[in-house]
Nucleic acid binder design. Structure first.
Lengths: 229, 229
DNA sequence: TCTGGTAAACTACCATACCAGAAGGGGGCG
DNA sequence: CGCCCCCTTCTGGTATGGTAGTTTACCAGA
């Protein structure tokens, strides 16, 4: 995730870095729900530090659109933005289609074997009900296609797009059945790549990414207060 | 630009907002060159304020990858990131292609007339050597195609992508001749849309966006110190 | 002239205090 | 019982001082 964590800079880790990581994790993992009120003084007291590093962490989280700071008012955990989600999804679809198009025109045997291997690992995780591992392999799968396409730069773009729906995915109750659908799509993608069937590949990519639309609609219906325009 | 300016929140404008806007403008307009060292104390003294709001502005600029802050070391104006530029350009190409594809399948008379009107305004600005106006119309042109495609959300995505090469474009010496090329591309795009010739439209969009590659290469050759990986 | 060591200066980060604006609660009045 | 006003509390923004880490400059010795 191209976030604002200074610690990734391999520099000295500051107190602000620690507070930032802790709060971001709480927000993204939905331990801090949208609408929750926070104050600099409260968080500072909780960690036995001054307001200053807490304030810096708040600012960085505001920049990630995870917190909403206004003068003299309680800071709140921002609801998820429908506009941001829509833009990120459109961006991801566009990028994945372009990556797929390029991958289709240059699949080589080594890359195909790598994809097959990732697919196999996903199947293994499905069979052992390891959903966390399965999702990790999902990222690996898409990254591998980017490499096949010669677009390593797209990996980070896709990662950032996925990050915008992190909180939403936590709310949705993903089960093995829906993961099987995802796996089927992946298998189909690999098949079309092997056949160099570009039109079918693009259709499958569109359908694959459209799956999340239902999830988004469900979560928005069940949790309307967690969203804003 | 989806930036970190709190002032766009229609809330109270703070001192930090003012410093942020001022410094960002200086950096983007290249009045502060990459590598320039800044310090909180120095900027605070310059504006006759305390270090605290300056620090907040620095943090926000760091988040925009315009400043590089490290503990106990002078803050520097970040060089332009080749990786960021590459990602942004790939993103923009992907999004513009998807937008074009959708626009091509649903051009209506009203939208075509709107595009023709924007094209006419661009020609007028070319004829009066108004390059600033011409570039403003460039954004309007691409936004109009997004509307035609029914993808208003893509407007902000494209705007953000363009923002990553703001500084680079300031360094390149754009002239009327290169703007004529841009205008020709735009005219060709409108023609293909009118003919519903999708393949040709996509080819023109690719070529149109590829023009900046030469500009980027030139600026990188002439100003190697302004770039980093 | 070069190199290493040391001291001074520079720097961001953190703590503390003060101020002004916003919100909430309680009391009084109609 | 409801509404309005006032007071208190909560809140972020800003100012100031201190500290620890880094850089730079100067000096001495080889």
């Amino acid at each position: 995730m191209s976030d604002t964590t200074a610690s990734l800079d391999f520099g000295r880790r500051t107190t602000a870095d620690t507070i930032f990581d802790s709060l971001r994790d709480d927000i993204v993992k939905m331990r801090l729900r949208p609408g929750t009120r926070l104050s600099e003084a409260e968080v500072a007291k909780l960690h036995d530090i001054s307001r200053q590093p807490v304030r810096e962490a708040f600012i960085r989280l505001d920049n990630l659109r995870l917190l909403h700071i206004r003068p003299q008012r309680a800071t709140v955990v921002r609801p998820m933005s429908n506009g941001t989600i829509k833009r990120a999804r459109f961006m991801r679809l566009s990028v994945e289609l372009e990556v797929a198009r390029r991958a289709c025109s240059r699949p080589d045997d080594a890359s195909m074997r790598a994809l097959q291997e990732v697919l196999q690992q996903q199947l293994e995780r499905l069979e052992t009900d390891d959903l966390t591992g399965f999702h990790q392999m999902d990222s690996v799968f898409h990254a591998e296609i980017c490499r096949m396409a010669g677009c390593e730069c797209a990996i980070e773009v896709i990662t950032d797009c996925k990050a915008t729906v992190d909180r939403l995915c936590i709310l949705s109750l993903k089960d093995v059945a829906s993961c099987r659908d995802v796996y089927s799509d992946h298998a189909e993608i690999v098949e079309h790549l092997a056949d160099r069937n570009c039109d079918s590949l693009l259709d499958t990519v569109r359908r694959h990414l459209a799956r999340l639309n239902n999830t988004i609609a469900e979560v928005q219906r069940d949790n309307p207060d967690y969203f804003e325009d």
